[in-house]
Design a protein around this nucleic acid. Sequence first.
DNA 1: CTGTTAGCGCCTTCAA
DNA 2: TTGAAGGCGCTAACAG
Lengths: 338, 338
Amino acid sequence: MRHQITIKDIAKELNISKSTVSRVLTGNPNVNEETRKKVLELAQKLDYQKNIFAHSLVTHKTNTIGIIVPEFMSSYFPKVIIGVQNIASKAGYNTIIAQSNENFETEVANAKVMMANQVEGLIVSVTKETKTFDHLMAFQRKEVPIVFFNRICEDMLVPKVVVDDYDGSFRAVEHLILTGKKRIAHLAGPDNLSISRRRLNGYLAALRKYDIEVDDDIIIPYDLQIDKVKSIINNLLDLPNPPNALFAINDPTAVEAIQAIKARGLRIPEDIAIVGFSNDQISGLIEPSLTTISQPVQKIGETAAELILQLINKELSLSSSIIKTLTTELIVRHSTVR
Amino acid sequence: MRHQITIKDIAKELNISKSTVSRVLTGNPNVNEETRKKVLELAQKLDYQKNIFAHSLVTHKTNTIGIIVPEFMSSYFPKVIIGVQNIASKAGYNTIIAQSNENFETEVANAKVMMANQVEGLIVSVTKETKTFDHLMAFQRKEVPIVFFNRICEDMLVPKVVVDDYDGSFRAVEHLILTGKKRIAHLAGPDNLSISRRRLNGYLAALRKYDIEVDDDIIIPYDLQIDKVKSIINNLLDLPNPPNALFAINDPTAVEAIQAIKARGLRIPEDIAIVGFSNDQISGLIEPSLTTISQPVQKIGETAAELILQLINKELSLSSSIIKTLTTELIVRHSTVR
DNA sequence: CTGTTAGCGCCTTCAA
DNA sequence: TTGAAGGCGCTAACAG
């Protein structure tokens, strides 16, 4: 790492005081126009870059927001990140990204890194394992704004960005019912995630509306471990009274289910219809294409970033527990309708 | 942002000098065992976290490596990042990730951020637009190690991690030939990317080996803009002598081609067989499933990280232009063989 | 408008 | 083995 141009260098070169140089660099108006121009020119010529460590050390500003996501493999989180960066970069903020690999310890470690880097705000979607939130409440204690999205902690009084999972699920299941299916299984998510519960409730509400009896035997909670889907599906199909439709908690699960069902030689949607959730890129490409609920993914990221910026700028109270709920859309494809 | 525990606090509490505390914290052996223990205990109890800005300011160590990728949408780059983080975190390094969205200006801006954050090493795969490398050579000038992967700059004398694109392409095309296809089109990448050229050369070599005439009309260079694939395919199929096979530069392109071909009512692979490159997750799920060349994606990230660490630790010369070439594998699926 | 001074939190001499 | 002092590069008073 070679020498870096500093304010001192510029001051010496121009034979003026460091503070004057600093003033022009920080946009302080009380500087002679002449001097200002000279400084700016030289800074430009020397390709001066402010030392952010020294800067942050004294100002406590880092111009950085952090984002922690559970995984990178589906197209969902990458898209959210793009949304966040869109907004953040416009406001002059850098983003530091960490992925926890659906692992709680990694999430805690990531939170530490964010803390060490003194992010001015943190956007988080927790892992499927996360049940305690001390590592995130530490930010609250230090009055660093947090915003949750997707996988949220309901107990923390901070802003959250979600989609209307309840409504989306309701319409997904209603759609199945309206295509004539009455025996609808549900692959549910882990119930420490409120998102799983909201989707489950939407499912239950739809059944209720159409006077369909709820059968716990075909509501299967699973831990989002994709490789378990196959055996779950096989168990379902081996039931004396197997389901003729399936509402899966998300698209990857639905896609896996489609594989398993095709492997058994059953027809989709005739023998069993399927709906997913999220409209992942893959859903339109698989055979049969997957009926699903689409969510405005990039918009979710943008909304979260906007909230964080408002919190940073004190336009919103830190303990505001505003919840931004974005709407979803039912995308009908061949897994439910030929 | 509330107050942070500092060395000063600990010193005051224990009524000893700051330098002693600092010694303990930096592992300096010249400290009384008693004192050491007391300091460590209190630090633990107070959850002392070193201020990384002050630390970096004086030591010039940041324990951070940067990684810049062109996109997040395919599963390729996220997997590479996981590989990098695996190795880096074991060595006590944090990773800061930036994605340039296939946009040259963004890449330059990202490089600036990395520079400002004084990353100790940088792992890069450039955008499809990148033709000049000043923003990256700046790191060389400052003696900050760089490693390229996938989309590399051949002109910079730095370590690189690639797969054997030439060999992979050769085998992909040979496979098509052996299934009886002789008129094989190629959707090539932008030729500023050496990866495109290597894959093209593999294609040409295979044709040559089997005495198949090269026809420039069915070698289509395109800019990886996925939405152009459809019209390219249609043009190819409208040719008086259309191809009966297609080798696409990557899987997303191949997948898009499959859509376009199915839309024309042609049969795959009977009318036209298809091979992609990368074995993206989607390739096994699409109908028909896609024959492709798989690459050890996570391993690529791990290898790049290992190289960066060696460079940082001076176990490798900064101007070493070692090229790590990982091997690929042909995965035969239904897009070439029923 | 400009220069001097002090200090952010840490590490590293130097002297004791 | 310990403490005091100085400096990393920058900003923010305080004088002038």
